[in-house]
């Protein structure tokens, strides 16, 4: 029975990240965010508040945006995880949303940017881009302390319009 094991016993967890399987032995307390950064070296996903309020750790789980800081790595077994590192093509070409962030200067310091971009890609996929107001509402889970919001909205709008064209 799992409950008779001492809590220090590592859990054997296989995480599927950016289309590769990674077998790991983890403390049960390890979050998906820590597993990505500390165990897989995927530091594109950022630690912001580590509290579920800033969006810096946004990743896609089974195609939907979620916060990696609030997911236990063990609970992400068997799920398809995509991080910012998995967004560009194999040949290194930028994803259209990454290119739009560059074109619209949608960042200043860049710390929130991986989370913004992962959230923005999902926002377009969800179809929550009918108006600027809707983009702002559905991007509100990603904070940018530099205040690049107008340019972030412009980038999301641009990609949504490209997709619709």
């Amino acid at each position: 029975m799992p409950d008779t094991l001492p809590p220090e016993t590592p859990l054997l967890v296989t995480l599927r990240v950016n289309e590769h399987d990674h077998p790991l032995a983890l403390d049960p307390r390890t979050t998906l965010l820590d597993a990505l950064r500390e165990h897989l070296g995927l530091t594109g996903t950022k630690v912001g508040c580590n509290h579920g309020t800033c969006g810096a750790c946004t990743v896609h789980i089974d195609g939907r945006r979620q916060l990696a800081c609030l997911v236990l790595a063990a609970a992400a077994q068997g799920r398809d995880i995509r991080t910012i590192e998995g967004l560009s093509d194999a040949d290194g070409a930028l994803h259209p949303m990454q290119a739009a962030f560059v074109a619209h200067d949608a960042l200043q310091c860049g710390y929130c940017t991986p989370g913004q971009i992962m959230s923005a890609v999902a926002c377009v996929t969800e179809g929550h881009t009918r108006t600027d107001a809707e983009i702002r509402e559905y991007m509100s889970g990603n904070l940018c302390r530099c205040g690049a919001y107008p340019n972030i909205v412009a980038a999301v709008r641009d990609v949504a319009q490209q997709k619709a064209a």
Binding site: P2, D3, P28, R29, L72, A74
Partner: peptide
């Protein structure tokens, strides 16, 4: 620290959830 269990069914979850100190995720 905590132990982590991933029940395969609701019936198994009922058994695990009964134990003192258990919490659902």
């Amino acid at each position: 620290p905590f132990t982590y269990a991933r029940p395969a069914s609701l019936t198994e979850a009922f058994t695990l959830a009964q134990q003192p100190g258990a919490a659902l995720l």
